[in-house]
Computed example of a mutant assay.
Amino acid sequence: MADEAQIPPYQDFLWPAVVALRTLGGSASIDELLEQVIVQQRYSEEQQAVLHGDGPRTEIGYRLAWARTYLKGMGLAENSQRGVWSLTEAGLNVEPEQIEPLRQKYIAASRSKNGARPRRKDSTPESEGFDESWEDQLLGRIMRLSPASFERLAQRLLREAGFTNTQVTGRSGDGGIDGLGVYRLSLVSFPIFFQCKRYVGSVGAGDVRDFRGAMAGRGDKGLVITTGTFTAEAKKEATRDGAPPLDLIDGSTLCTLMKEYGLGVIVTTRAVEDVSIDEEFFETGF
């Protein structure tokens, strides 16, 4: 198993992230950006499986998150409320030799703004911690479920998404198939087999092939749901030419769907006031 030492530090993700965004047309979702960086940098499945701490975030995903944050602070990238990252004009034109000077400039400006504080010589953003997101908290809670409970959660989620006759059928000797549901699209309906993988880490291409093999002769529509991630090779295998395509739901997508359907997530909307001075009021003499 690879370890964190085999994953480059966050600053080595800065230029690859810029190149990946350029390759993707100047903008990308977080998942698209991560997958493109993995492909371009040729990270192995073993490297993709390395977790940050106890997970669920992978070390590559964690360090790329820091790189995104730095690119934003360096004025090279920006993100929308929907989590889409895009290059600014400066990001579209930056050269690789400019990255490190811009990073040092951003670090100096941040320290000046936040006040000087003692730092270890080997201090890095990784060593200073990363705020746990609601997605991390939700995945942590799901990980405390039993395997059977996670299967029932997947069943409930699919029902909320419009599946009918959804059943949990997982049993030993069933080749990894955990359930079956029927999805209707307009006038056509078709069965979809699903598999639940409740663990941290990455689902590899071998797991995808095994699940497809278990479906052989029984159906050609499949769905793999995991609390972890899928390696780039697994995603490629899921859509391989000549083989029945499989749909993949990773931990991030699972959290988004649970939020969308109100399962285990409470969303509170807060009103924020923007207050500014009305100069015209004062100038007109009240």
Rank of each mutant, 00 (worst) to 15 (best):
G170C: 04
S110Y: 12
A154W: 02
S172P: 11
L92D: 04
G91H: 01
G91D: 07
R156Y: 11
F130N: 04
T88D: 00
L102W: 08
S80L: 01
G162A: 09
R144I: 00
A154N: 09
Q167A: 13
S146F: 00
R111V: 05
F150N: 00
G175D: 03
N93Q: 14
A108M: 11
P147V: 00
E135N: 09
S112A: 15
A108R: 10
R152H: 11
L92M: 14
N93E: 14
T164Y: 02
K113F: 03
L145D: 01
A116I: 06
I99Y: 01
S133W: 03
E126M: 04
A109N: 12
P125I: 03
T166P: 06
E126V: 11
Q137R: 15
L139Y: 01
D178G: 11
F163R: 03
E100W: 10
G176N: 06
I177D: 00
G173V: 07
F150I: 02
G129E: 05
E126F: 00
Q98E: 15
S133K: 06
G91M: 03
W85E: 07
G115C: 08
S149N: 11
I107D: 07
G83N: 09
N114T: 13
N93V: 04
R117D: 15
G83R: 12
P96K: 13
P125F: 10
E97Q: 12
Q104D: 10
G162Q: 05
G162P: 04
V94C: 04
A90C: 05
S112N: 10
Q155N: 14
R141G: 05
E95V: 06
E128Y: 09
S80F: 01
A116F: 07
R82M: 10
P101C: 15
R159I: 14
Y106L: 11
R82G: 10
W134R: 11
S172T: 14
R152M: 09
G83I: 11
R119G: 05
T88A: 02
S146V: 00
E95F: 01
R171Q: 15
E128L: 12
E126A: 11
Y106N: 11
T169A: 05
M143C: 02
R141Y: 08
G162M: 03
E151D: 08
R111L: 07
R152F: 08
G162I: 05
